[in-house]
Amino acid sequence: MESIAIFVDVQNVYYTTRQAFGRRFDYNALWAKLSQSYRIDIARAYAISSTDPKQRQFHHILRGIGFNVQLKPFIQRLDGSAKGDWDVGLALDVYETANSVDRIVLISGDGDFQVLVERIQQRFNTKVTVAGVRSLTANNLIQAADDYIEIDSDLLIGQ
């Protein structure tokens, strides 16, 4: 079995599944799907910390599934704008992990990750699978990946 490292851009997954389907992503279904074909060596979910009890419960659920949850504070700027982005931290972790597994599984539709995908393929000869909502995943990211998993009703909670 190939060894994999899973990296989830939680904010991207939340907003894209909500926008496209009005439903939530099923992390248990993802884990079950991937563990049928791969040995999961590393699983990290990148999220924004919160004092909201539902968000904290969600983070505990992710941990219970097997994810190492990485939290970053939500920053409210003086001008009213907000920042809560994990892109750089996620990219660094992927890059530092890429040489220790056979495949990286990146759960995000963010086209900014195209350069990361291409770099780890070239430098480490590590395969990359991208998963995302088809209509909201950047085409350049899909094309750069070795494989693509479309998030559809099989990976969503509810009807």
Rank of each mutant, 00 (worst) to 15 (best):
T16S: 03
S49W: 12
L136D: 07
N140S: 09
F7S: 01
G22L: 10
T16W: 00
I61K: 11
I48F: 07
I4Y: 08
D102Y: 06
V117T: 03
A91W: 13
D79T: 10
S50C: 09
E96V: 12
S3V: 01
L155F: 15
R123G: 05
T16N: 00
Q70H: 11
S50N: 11
V101Y: 09
Q57D: 08
A47Y: 05
V105F: 12
Y46K: 01
S135T: 15
N125C: 11
I40L: 03
R23L: 06
K54M: 09
R103N: 11
D147P: 10
Y95N: 04
N125K: 15
S153T: 15
D52G: 10
I104W: 02
V69G: 04
Q57C: 08
H60Q: 14
V105W: 07
N125R: 15
D154V: 06
F67M: 06
T16R: 00
I6F: 00
Q121E: 07
A91K: 14
I120L: 08
A5C: 04
L78P: 05
I151F: 11
K83M: 04
I151E: 03
E2V: 02
A82D: 03
F25V: 07
W86F: 12
V13K: 10
S153H: 15
V101I: 12
V117N: 01
P73C: 01
R23A: 03
G64N: 13
L116D: 06
K33G: 01
I151Q: 06
A45S: 09
G111D: 01
F74V: 02
T126P: 07
N125W: 14
V133A: 04
A43S: 08
D9Y: 05
T16Q: 00
Q70R: 14
F113M: 02
D87Q: 12
N125V: 14
A32Q: 13
D146P: 11
K72M: 08
S100R: 11
Y15N: 05
I120F: 04
G132R: 04
I157V: 10
V105D: 07
V88I: 15
F7H: 02
A29L: 13
S81A: 09
G132N: 07
S81E: 08
A29K: 14
N140D: 02
I40S: 02
D26T: 13
T16H: 00
Y46W: 00
Q122I: 04
Q76C: 10
I107P: 04
